[in-house]
Design a protein around this nucleic acid. Sequence first.
RNA 1: UGGGGCGUAGCCAAGUGGUAAGGCACGGGAAUUUGGAUCCCGCAUUCGAAGGUUCGAACCCUUCCGCCCCAGCCA
Length: 567
Amino acid sequence: MDDGEFKATVNFIQEIINQDKKTNKHNGRVHLRFPPEPNGYLHIGHAKSICLNFGLAAQNGGLCNLRFDDTNPSKEDVEYIDSIINDVRWLGFDWEGRLFYASDYFEKMYDYAVSLIKAGKAYVCDLSPEETRKYRGSFKEPGRESPYCNRSVEENLDLFRRMRAGEFPDGSRVLRAKIDMSSPNLNMRDPVLYRILKATHHRTGDKWCIYPMYDYAHPLEDYYEKITHSVCTLEFEDHRPLYDWVLNALNLLDLPQQIEFARLNLTNTVMSKRRLRRLVEEGYVTGWDDPRIPTIAGLRRRGYTSEAIRNFCDRIGVAKTNSVVDIRFLEYCIREDLNIKAPRVMAVLKPLRLVIDNYPHDMVEEMESENNPEDSTAGNRKVPFSRILYIEREDFCEDPPKKYFRLAPGREVRLKNAYIIRCEEFVRDEKTGEIKEIHCTYDLESKSGMPGAKRKVKGTLHWVSADHALKAEVRLYDYLLLDQNEGVEEQEEGEDFIKQIKPNSLEVLDDCLVEPSLAGAASGNRYQFMRKGYFCVDPDSTSDKLVFNRIVSLRDTWDRILKAEKN
RNA sequence: UGGGGCGUAGCCAAGUGGUAAGGCACGGGAAUUUGGAUCCCGCAUUCGAAGGUUCGAACCCUUCCGCCCCAGCCA
């Protein structure tokens, strides 16, 4: 997958693993996990984490589990579990049966909490959420001890048992760790371990009405699964002392090590679960698999390959610096992959009728065409050619600017895999002034493969035969957000990222014409529409009407020249 | 404001005391029946800043500056 010119440099996590292997920490075992909360769809930021965790395991002869961190039933749902499992598998990773749920450990976690209480390291606190916040203090001020922090072990045990039994309403009591209310790290000011939540859990049903908090549950989950390296994102750095505290308070051995790295940000798009959910729920996009959003489902529908995504993730690097990766790098990765894989076909997106006046009326020639010049095993196909063709509207210009190599009055151009033609005249719609049709003559010595084809001609155009072409709908996607840098996290108070959405991030082309070899193209198939880009058959496609998504355009040097001249 | 992190090119990112890798983007050129792909060439006298240590500093020390995260009974 990544052999060839690209060589990954050893990242800092691999360095830690190298060191641990050297000192035989964990007896040389390497065991990681990808621990999503099932409260949303996976996006390419998760893909970075998935590739990192599973990749590190693979590179080190280790293991990687898939684990759902389902400790908050009020936000989670099986819909998300199913989609996450599907996405991780689609990305190409295998947890080899080690699929776990935090909820599987609730009983053990409860028992550990009881031992914490017995050891005098946890207590039941009756403060309300508001009071708890006040007692916690601030960055400036130390917190104050809870009036309940010195309850007897017996009373704590009794209260905690009754919390579990459902005797108290939501929010009335919590179990707290007894650590240090004056710690400069707010996470250590007697953090909440368990809260009462009378919600039906998607897996345990109504068995529980108390649920462990992340800070308590996560280190235990890692411990139960014998995780050696617990990789998470930067915002958990402040939680590491608590992660370690839980494990140490219980006197556990062979402990996992939490290591934090920077999450992925991409330009021109949104990446937070909150924002993606908003786009979906408020109808700015058509669903979690809308090809404009960077969810795995969206990228997949758009036509991205898992290889390209993995490659991207492997190449962006792993570090602790907050960064925003240019989305054009992702585009580079998919073009690189599809350049080798995607068969070439001809498709005219915005058709302009072209008549070859000196070509016989009823003649049809089958033009031999290479399926993929980058792949000698891809073979050839025949494409029908006749007197009336369609070319791309933008491939003709009445009054061409300099450096324009395409068709213009009196000019010659090559039709890909066919003949060299000359534009003799064009017909204008009298009412609209729009150019309706162009008339050409062809050089019958210039057919591809013949000696006469060797003549140098500036431009080569793609085309379809009017009588043979298939109608198609093509969906062109643009970046979701206007400003390049608004892919970063939260904005100023009151600023709404919704305002940054491009009004025309989706353009639907209804009257496209594609070559007949595309008849019956299966959903998910990818092609290069020559000179236009890479396209993927959408699930909406039917035998009556083909529907394609543009995955990414080809690099367009002409377009760049035009833009450069504007500036 | 207390704590925790991070500053190397437009964007990622190596570099760990011996004189700034690589990729993307960008610019130029070659070749070309895709203005694609490919191939060449160019692109940081300097590493957030200033001092110091050293024969030698992006790397070590000091001070300063900037950015990110934390005051959920979310994860």
